[in-house]
């Protein structure tokens, strides 16, 4: 009784928030409703006894994917009102697609026949005395290992592809060489001199280190100030 009530409550909120995802005017609000939808879906998983899937849904979708969605939506300056302008024009086409999809769904569900054993299996997918996680592990890493590995490979390819597409060094950034940085000693960079009063550092034979050429051309002013600090550090003594 309580389980049924909880199911309907979560399912109602899930559907309502899914509707808000597509109807909300503000894209950030859309993503936040999407997160609410994920949460309710995970609650439904818990009610179905699939606690591992429920937690994974929250970790993967809410904890990582939706964060990136939110990130992108907040950063991009998309005019969503402009995007919606064609709504009236495309409405007939959209409705036609909806009718076709609904008809297909009705045909599939209408002709669906299930063996009684299969139905029982659906209600008790796991043996009662083992935890969900163990059962999933035993299934995924034995019967479905190839499919599991293949999906992993596909994700890896997608990841490498994304990195290759976006990572390019345009020479605008200066990277720190951690190895060189930690091996630096005061002897490499500091010069101790007795400065005569009134004498400039040039007169004492101390010159600024050369800046990297490409960067130096672009940020001449900045570098002068920056390196000036370093080379004159000895001069203060």
């Amino acid at each position: 009784m309580i389980a049924a009530l909880a199911f309907y409550a979560f399912a109602a909120v899930l559907l309502a928030s899914a509707a808000m995802v597509v109807s909300s005017r503000n894209p950030v609000h859309s993503v936040l409703f999407l997160i609410l939808a994920f949460f309710n879906a995970s609650a439904l998983f818990v009610l179905a006894g699939a606690e591992f899937l429920a937690m994974t849904l929250v970790i993967v979708y809410v904890g990582a994917v939706a964060v990136l969605f939110l990130f992108v939506v907040m950063m991009l300056d998309i005019n969503f009102v402009q995007l919606r302008e064609g709504f009236q024009r495309y409405l007939p086409v959209g409705l036609a697609v909806v009718v076709v999809l609904l008809a297909e769904l009705a045909m599939v569900l209408g002709g669906w026949k299930m063996a009684p054993e299969a139905m029982n299996l659906r209600f008790a997918p796991i043996a009662a005395n083992t935890s969900n996680t163990v059962q999933l592990g035993k299934l995924i890493y034995t019967d479905y290992i190839l499919i599991f590995q293949a999906s992993g490979m596909i994700l890896l390819v997608a990841m490498i592809g994304a990195i290759v597409l976006t990572l390019r060094d345009r020479g605008l950034t200066r990277k720190q060489n951690i190895n060189a940085q930690t091996r630096r000693t005061p002897a490499d960079t500091l010069v101790l001199v007795d400065a005569r009063s009134g004498a400039g550092i040039g007169e004492l034979g101390i010159y600024r280190p050369k800046a990297p050429e490409s960067v130096a051309a672009a940020h001449d002013e900045h570098h002068d100030a920056h390196h000036g600090d370093h080379s004159s550090a000895g001069g203060h003594h």
Partner: peptide, 23 residues
């Protein structure tokens, strides 16, 4: 049964408070 996953899920949600506040 999935206590560790629950903790991990909740701690991964902590970022929302920060993002929503900032936005």
């Amino acid at each position: 049964n999935v206590g560790v996953l629950y903790l991990f899920a909740i701690s991964s949600l902590g970022v929302y408070g920060v993002i929503i506040a900032g936005w």
